[in-house]
Amino acid sequence: MMDFGFKLSKSATIDLDRAGTERYEKLCALSPDARTCMACGSCSATCTAASFSGMSVRKVILGLQRGQDVRPLLSACMLCGKCTLVCPRGINTRRLILNLSKSYD
């Protein structure tokens, strides 16, 4: 194929009717505070791992609600706890990340 220096990006359409949210529900059972996230993005702004894997708790929670695979995001999280400290909803994000890491089996 000819290389034009740009390409078509993958479709970013999310079909919420067909999104599998089992993992999200599973997570909420372990970390009920996940439901209180208001996607403010404070955690994204501070995340130590953001520049390595694009990590942010907000993205993880949104991704799970949409049935996406969030494992690549999580891979660089260092559990540093900055997200917990800045979260205005007081979500225990480290616990949330640990619970989520445990749930993939």
Binding site: F52, S53, S75, A76, C77, L98, S101, K102, Y104, D105
Partner: peptide, 13 residues
């Protein structure tokens, strides 16, 4: 002693 199925991967750093 707990087992986490998902392991981080820092190779990109």
């Amino acid at each position: 002693e707990r087992n986490y199925a998902l392991k981080p991967d820092y190779s990109s750093i």
